[in-house]
Structure formats: structure tokens, C-alpha cells
Design a protein around this nucleic acid. Sequence first.
DNA 1: CTCTTTAGTTATCATTTGATAAATAAATCG
DNA 2: CGATTTATTTATCAAATGATAACTAAAGAG
Lengths: 143, 143
Amino acid sequence: MDTKKLFQKFVAFTTAVHRVKHEMTKDVRTGEITPVQYDILEYIAVSQPVTLSEISDCQHLSMPNASRELKKLAEKNLCEKFAASEDRRKQYIRLSKKGEAMMNKVFESVEARFLERIKHASEEDLKEIEHALDVLHAKAFYS
Amino acid sequence: MDTKKLFQKFVAFTTAVHRVKHEMTKDVRTGEITPVQYDILEYIAVSQPVTLSEISDCQHLSMPNASRELKKLAEKNLCEKFAASEDRRKQYIRLSKKGEAMMNKVFESVEARFLERIKHASEEDLKEIEHALDVLHAKAFYS
DNA sequence: CTCTTTAGTTATCATTTGATAAATAAATCG
DNA sequence: CGATTTATTTATCAAATGATAACTAAAGAG
């Protein structure tokens, strides 16, 4: 196998994923939050409940900066902190009602665009897409 | 086909691509340039020669901001502008020798990590990966 | 019970990024 | 030719982000 060619495809593909993701989410960000705050909210939505340390690690933010941004999100009533019973230093974070509502709207909108994007795909195509997602996730974009 | 489930895979996959790309490129950025400047350089490297307007469009930067960042890159001798003969308002932009050298090193390093990432894949696996890249690029992450 | 480590906060400062207004200069349109 | 559009620049300001130091409070180790 010509891995050089494979690598080029890998790069082009990665760029395409970036572009498409940006296009699908660019206007879902309300004026209320910054890009970094949106990323944090998205992460919480998918992984809640999470700790501050996890946000810091996964979003590549220092603890002080993560703490600051989370405070702003809490002030905007988009997420809530609650103490962990096992360890009183820790706190778990989850979306508030308002945060849930916002992220639900976001995901609905993104899903609609996704469906639009695959609307001309046949049942076969969809199977192929699903399989391709599984393959790449497992063999190239694993953690 | 359960498109709900497919959408969830799509989201999880997109996140994984982000994460992997970040991991593969995080330390290739020398201290000399900012993240936005790195993105511009990467875009020039792949698409050169490009115009300022193209950078502005593709990198989602306003013209004034694109112009500013490009000026900084030119001052660092990482890229060069040259007038377009057809239209004297335009200028084409390409990497300088130094910029080429920098980006070559970057791509080498990323390629090495890519190879590391797929080193345990069999010849069959590689074929499957390549096919999956083609399928997804054409049917889900097209432009 | 001290010592060290872990989780998180607050404050501060520098840098980066984004947004906007106003300018130049060349191309194109009528 | 004059008016408009296109490509780009410069300047300026506000906001977002990143980095660092110094702090509190609880947990865990010996």
C-alpha cells in the first residue's frame, strides 16, 4: 500500500471534516457565548456530569482559564456546579435547564443539516457511510 | 436506516477527528507563530498560490484581519507576496523558502505520527481505511 | 499529626483575535 | 470619461484567550 497517498487522503479528509463541521455549526452559536464557551458547553452536553479538571484536560485549557470560563457560563445560567459527595474538593458540572434547552436547539439544527447533507443517499449509501464511520473511528481516529 | 443513530456516530466521529488532529499537530507549532497564523500557513502550503481574499474566505477571517496576519507572516519571512500580472489589484501568496522548510518539517512530523497510528494495520485494514476515507469524503463531508 | 498532593479559585497582565471605519488603487461598467 | 465595484491596506478599539503567581481547602501518605 502506498502510505504516502493514504496520508494525503487523510490530510485532505481531515480538512474536509473541519470545514463541514464549521459550516454546520457556525450560526448556532448565539451571541451570548464565545467560541471557547461553546466548546465547553458542547463537551458538557455530551459528557455530563464532568469535573473542572476534565474540562481543563479535554478542552486544552489551563485550570485557571477553565475555571474563569465556567464561572461565566454559570453566571449566564447555562450550567450548574454541584459538590461531589465522595470528595469535597471536587464538583460535578452539568447543564442547567436553560443550557439543556440551548444545546438541544443546537443539536436539532445540526442534525437537520446532517439529514439535508445525506438526503440524496440511498439505503445502501447510508449503510456504507455508517460502516465507514465505524472503520475510521476504530482504525485511524481512535484515542 | 436509523438516522438518529447515524447522526450520533457522525457527531462522535467528528469529535474524534478533532481530537486526533489536535494531538497530531499540537507541538508542531513553533513558538514563532500564533494558532491563526499556523492555520493560514497550512492553507497556503496546501493551496498555493493563493490570494488574500481566498485566505479571508477559507479561514473565516475578515479582510483587514487576514491582511494583518499575513503581513506578520511576511515580516517573519515565512511567506511572500507577488503581484498578479492579469490584475494589478491582486497579489498571489506563496510560502518562502523558510516557510516551505517549516511546513515540510511539520508535515513530516505529522506523517510520522500518522504512520505510527496505522502501523498495526494489516494490508486489508489499509485498503479498508482508504475506501472509508473515499466514501465519507464523497458522501458525508463533501463541499 | 505534619507533609504533600489534588482540585479549584482569584487576580493580573500580555497577547491574540475580532470588528469597524476609512483609505488607496486598479478594474469594470455604462 | 465618470461612477461603481473589487482587492487590499492601515489604523483603532474592544473582547477573548493564554499564562502565571499566589491562594484556599480537602484528601491522602507516612
